[in-house]
């Protein structure tokens, strides 16, 4: 299974973790589990985990990316978040 997704998220909007998702820290990053659709997703970077955890403290996704992700990495992380959204883990707030 490929976790590559095209970046489809509108970064000018605010996105948050679905309330049905639990996150568990692991040495490689974290596991995310959606209790509703039963999807288990591996977050393979601590930065991604920090980003996901902090989403609801920023006005919109651009704000979170500006604060937590190096400019050169921005599109990679936007892509990762898009794939989380496609798995139902994120929702617009």
């Amino acid at each position: 299974m490929s976790d590559v997704a095209t970046a489809t998220l509108d970064a000018s909007r605010a996105w948050v973790l679905s309330p049905e998702v639990s996150l568990r820290d692991e040495a490689f990053g974290a596991l995310a589990y959606h209790h509703g659709n039963r999807r288990l997703v591996f977050l393979k970077s601590p930065t991604l985990v920090a980003l996901v955890r902090a989403l609801d403290t920023y006005e919109n996704l651009n704000g979170a990316l500006d604060a937590l992700v190096a400019p050169a990495e921005r599109s990679r992380y936007l892509q990762a978040l898009s794939s989380l959204e496609q798995s139902g883990l994120l929702r617009a707030s």
Partner: peptide
């Protein structure tokens, strides 16, 4: 990731 799993999880 598989190597990581082989070393165990929390």
């Amino acid at each position: 990731l598989r190597d990581r799993f082989e070393r165990g999880l929390a």
